[in-house]
Amino acid sequence: MKNFWTPFIRLILALGIAIMLGFLFVPLLSVFVSMTPGELFKKLNTQVSYQALYLSLGTTLIALAIIILCGTPVAYWLAKSHFWGNRFVRVLIQMPIVSPPAVAGVGLLLVFGRVGWLGSTLSFSGLSFSFNLQAVIMAQVFISAPFYISSAMQAFETIDDKFLAVSRTLGVSRWQTFWRVTIPLASGGLLTGAALSWGRALGEFGATMMFAGNLPGKTQTLPLAIYTAMQSDSKTAIAMSALLLFISFVLLLLVVLVGRMSHLRQDAKKKEGDSDAIISF
């Protein structure tokens, strides 16, 4: 028997969902509809925005490379070795996700700033880490690495050790096994982690502002350029926001598509195999 209230509850639920979705999408869409595409493009066509765009893409790609190179061993180590304090290290690694980026900026300054712990020592050797390109990359790595590491860690964790053992009994070394079994099996999680991480690095603002400063063409990434433009010409800021959103969207789409493709390959073969699978014991 149908409850009298069911339609009302459904209506309220539908309304709630619609409001939530609207709330999430409309602010993002507004960036695109507030200006005509021609105007958008005209506002974007300035040296400042190009500089910021190239700087953003370049630094985030370097940051991503560092994150993948250094983060993968860390993730694998945390996922596969059981030492005392493992959990504690895991929590520590996630800290940058929950701590405000401004805090990260302050922390980086305290360590690498001119009067910071390491910074003061390193400045004697002529090295400087703050307010330059290295600083931008460092801030991005600091803020976005945990996204990759925790995603990769989960991916590695789900791989049963028996696959690694059986690979070795088949005469394949640990290192080869890592490339031929672990990486393919973890690829989904690694890819998602890399995309999340890249997206976060692209949007990084607070720590960069604090630690690297806001110099056009030098440390001014797209988010900083948007912030700066907002202080003088909000239309340019909107145009740059649209650009950043567009890049992030393409990035997300790419990840979904690549993930799909690797699944499709298996699915196609599965379907082929369906008819054969009937021949069983």
Binding site: K162, A165, S167, R168, L170, G171, R174
Partner: peptide, 29 residues
């Protein structure tokens, strides 16, 4: 080390590589 022992090991639930086809699984070693 295991990889140099030339032994065949069949695990309890067989541990076939899920990302490889039957042929690729057999050719793995």
């Amino acid at each position: 080390p295991t990889e140099d022992r030339q032994i065949g090991f069949v695990f309890q639930d067989y541990a076939l590589f899920p990302h490889l086809s039957v042929r690729e699984n057999i050719l793995y070693g």
